[in-house]
């Protein structure tokens, strides 16, 4: 899939939807990486809500060529329903803000994740400050 470059983005730009399944292996790797000891996920197929957001952002990175050194400055999430490893998800992403003010370059992307049945399970808003072009 060709990646869109930062300079090509405009407010309202919608990234191609990304469809993926959250596997038990993906969840296990995530739980270990974040040191999540929670009994809630032991012997269950529940997916941590933040992992759903992280996977949506990973899917976004497949279609966006981000400048190296971008810094995450703020994050909003709304968790609307539990997600299990049986779910196949589709994430949607849209540019909601792009500001270039002198040396400051700020990009905000809205996220939405749905199940195959069309049930929205997560919405989010992620903002980055981008380094100056070299």
């Amino acid at each position: 899939m060709p990646r869109v470059e930062y300079h090509q983005l405009e407010v309202g730009y919608e990234f191609p939807p990304s469809r993926y399944q959250v596997t038990p292996q993906t969840v296990a790797a995530y739980l270990e990486a974040v040191d999540e000891p929670g009994a809630l996920y032991r012997d269950s197929d529940l997916v941590p809500p933040l992992a759903v957001g992280v996977l949506a952002m990973a899917a976004l990175s497949d279609s966006l060529s981000f400048p190296q050194g971008a810094i995450h400055v703020s994050q909003e999430f709304e968790f609307l329903a539990t997600v299990s490893t049986k779910d196949t998800l589709t994430s949607h992403a849209r540019v909601s803000r792009k500001q270039d003010r002198g040396k400051l370059r700020l990009l905000t992307i809205d996220l939405s994740v749905l199940t195959e049945e069309g049930r929205e399970v997560l919405t989010g808003k992620t903002s980055f400050i981008l380094p100056e072009p070299r």
Binding site: L40, T82, V83
Partner: peptide, 14 residues
Amino acid sequence: GRQWLSDGRLNVRF
């Protein structure tokens, strides 16, 4: 618990 997974909202700044 599980309520956080299905009806939680988060708004933070790094």
